[in-house]
């Protein structure tokens, strides 16, 4: 469950995604940005990245030996 470069065993790697990656992700699944799971801009990991409202944070999750990406929309 550990993130490879994360600061903590239980915190997977977070980073802010750029527009292109996000657009293809959303188009493939016919989603709107508002449909994504949320993360508060006051969340410790969002603060660390300096993420602002409306940006999307990509989480490199690693559960049960299965790596995948999870996206969260930054909200206030």
């Amino acid at each position: 469950m550990a993130g490879k470069r994360g600061d903590h065993e239980y915190v997977p790697v977070h980073d802010i995604v750029d527009g292109k990656e996000l657009r293809t992700f959303l188009e493939e699944r016919k989603l709107k940005v508002e449909n994504l799971p949320k993360i508060f801009s006051t969340d410790p990991q969002a603060v660390k990245l300096g993420a602002k409202e409306g940006q999307v944070i990509r989480v490199k999750r690693n559960d049960h030996s299965n790596e995948y990406l999870y996206y969260r929309l930054v909200i206030k």
């Binding site: 903590h8 915190v11 997977p12 990991q45 969002a46 999750r61 969260r72």
Partner: peptide
């Protein structure tokens, strides 16, 4: 406590664990 210190993703992993 995990949520406040490490954020939502850590809270989610703590819940599962």
């Amino acid at each position: 406590a995990m949520y406040n210190l490490f954020g939502i993703e850590a809270a989610r992993n703590t819940l599962v664990n």
